[in-house]
């Protein structure tokens, strides 16, 4: 805020009903009401959406790249979570 410019907002758009909101970009706005309007003008002028979320960029908590290995590598060897891990006898269907 202040003379350093309006805060940054992250914009999420639902492209059509049945889909989740997806991150499309960011913009500057003085407050939430203007942010959602600016998002409409900036990101949906070619009918790209039916619903918009705006979130102050500062409100996002992200996982840290430093913890990337500890966060995501342990999932790598749990192959039994995936259906392709299992052997299915020939001829068995709908499994």
């Amino acid at each position: 805020m202040s003379s350093r410019g309006w805060p940054l907002w992250e914009v999420f758009v639902r492209a059509r009903r049945g889909l989740a909101h997806t991150h499309v970009g960011s913009l500057h706005a003085p407050d939430a009401e203007m942010a959602v309007r600016n998002a409409r003008d900036v990101f949906t002028r070619r009918s790209e959406g039916v619903s918009i979320w705006v979130v102050p960029a500062a409100a996002i908590t992200a996982s840290s790249p430093d913890e990337k290995d500890a966060f995501f590598d342990p999932a790598g060897d749990k192959v039994y979570r995936h259906p392709t891990f299992y052997e299915v006898p020939e001829g068995v269907e709908h499994l």
């Binding site: 913009l27 500057h28 203007m34 600016n38 002028r45």
Partner: peptide
């Protein structure tokens, strides 16, 4: 006054 407003006024 701001880029976002350029886009809004053009709409």
């Amino acid at each position: 006054p701001e880029l976002e407003e350029d886009v809004a006024l053009a709409n």
